[in-house]
Amino acid sequence: MKHLLMALSLMLSPLAMAERSELGELQVTEVVGDLQHPWALTFLPQGQGSLITERPGRLRWLNAQGQLSEPLGGVPEVYAKGQGGLLDVVLSPQFTEDRLVYLSYAEGDAQGDKAGTAVGRGRLREDMGALDDFQVIFRQQPKLSSGIHFGSRLAFDREGYLFISLGENNQRPTAQHLDKLQGKLVRLQADGRVPPDNPFVDQQGARAEIWSYGHRNPQGLALNPWSGRIWLHEHGPRGGDEINIPRKGLNYGWPLATHGVNYSFLAIPEAQGERVAGTEAPQHVWEKSPAISGMAFYTAERFPAWQHNLFIGALADQSLIRLQLDGDKVVHEERLLKDKDWRIRDVRQGPDGYLYLLTDAPDGKLIRLGLEKGQ
């Protein structure tokens, strides 16, 4: 860890920027730039740097000295249209033994007209040059997207189950259809097999992969380190971005229940109100959509003032949202970095206790964020 911290200090831009937050002075530092629409970040163990996805279809290795690799080999072909492309990246819970890297991405159909979310895994070479033996373990069916609402975040729980968030491809009613994988959170074993205790395993006409349903476009997924439960957040339409804590087999409402309206300001045709019988109310809701993406619980000791906080990136609001938690309840909110004009796509806690942010742009950046003097 000491070697990693020394290397990180060397690779950071000397043009560190400072600004105030409610909890003190922020230290904002550019780690690396010239990333083309970076989407997700994961840290490798033992000071080996990190992996970064770029939406056009590239996986890059950033070493501990701040050098960005050429695109890695062995990455699947992606449907790089609209919001589609190479999306999330996470490591196997047993990465130090198996070196497996999981990728989510938009995958086109045979005609290239429609697409859906796919997930696969490959073994990262010791030289970091490629993923070997990449195998697709999951495909969203049917393929209905023309370039939007892929969802596509990945998270493992404490038992090693893989959760995959899936957008409804802008086909609203499908989020309520249990025979389709649009607008769902699915739960799989690490190799893609369906766990026998999934809620719809024995229900005729329902997909056995489904854990929960009625989601719109979930682009935040993380394991709450204190409760052990998976948290999910999703884009609303115009208004109504939500945080949910998805429970087994439950319906989270979209498009029947929503706090938002269409982008045209007209009502969602299927909507019956903000609360609808038989559906779950959001854990937290924004009446005005920040357009949320990425999510990280803060557990490190470096900045005690951030402990038991949840950090979420915002695209339209161009900010980092800090949520103070009391158990599962959001008790305070602060918007950070509002003057930077950054569309924040992903946020992760680094092994050094800093937060790391990816900005979604043709010349995107990896940013390191901390508090002055470990406040």
Rank of each mutant, 00 (worst) to 15 (best):
A106K: 11
E70Q: 09
P76V: 13
E54S: 03
R99W: 12
P142S: 02
A130Y: 14
T53Q: 04
R99T: 11
S69G: 14
G74E: 01
K114P: 01
R123Y: 14
G82Q: 06
E77K: 15
A106F: 11
V136A: 03
L72Q: 03
F150Y: 07
R123F: 14
Q83I: 08
F138S: 04
P76Y: 12
R123M: 14
E70T: 05
K81C: 15
Q141Y: 10
Q140S: 08
G74A: 01
L124S: 00
G49C: 09
K143V: 10
S145N: 06
Q65F: 05
R99H: 15
G73V: 07
I52R: 05
I137K: 08
G151M: 11
L51Q: 11
M128A: 09
L59D: 05
F95E: 14
A106I: 14
R125Q: 15
S152V: 02
L59R: 02
L59P: 05
G49M: 04
S145Y: 06
R123D: 09
W61T: 10
Q94G: 04
D88E: 06
E54D: 08
Q141R: 13
Q111Y: 04
V101A: 03
E126I: 13
Q48K: 14
V90P: 08
G147Q: 04
Q48V: 10
F150H: 06
M128W: 06
Q48C: 10
A115F: 09
G120S: 07
E126R: 09
G66Y: 04
G151A: 13
G82T: 09
A106E: 12
D109W: 03
D127A: 13
E126A: 15
K81D: 15
I52Q: 11
E107G: 02
R55W: 09
E54G: 02
R60L: 07
R60V: 04
Q111N: 12
L131N: 00
V119D: 07
Q67V: 13
P71E: 00
D109F: 02
P71A: 00
H149Q: 13
D109V: 03
D113P: 00
G108H: 08
D88Q: 03
P56A: 01
D98F: 05
G108W: 05
K143D: 06
Y102W: 05
L86F: 11
S92F: 12
D98S: 08
L59M: 08
T96E: 15
G57Q: 08
H149P: 05
R58S: 15
V136W: 02
E97P: 04
S92E: 11
G108T: 08
V101F: 02
D127F: 12
S104W: 07
W61A: 05
E107I: 01
P76W: 11
R99E: 14
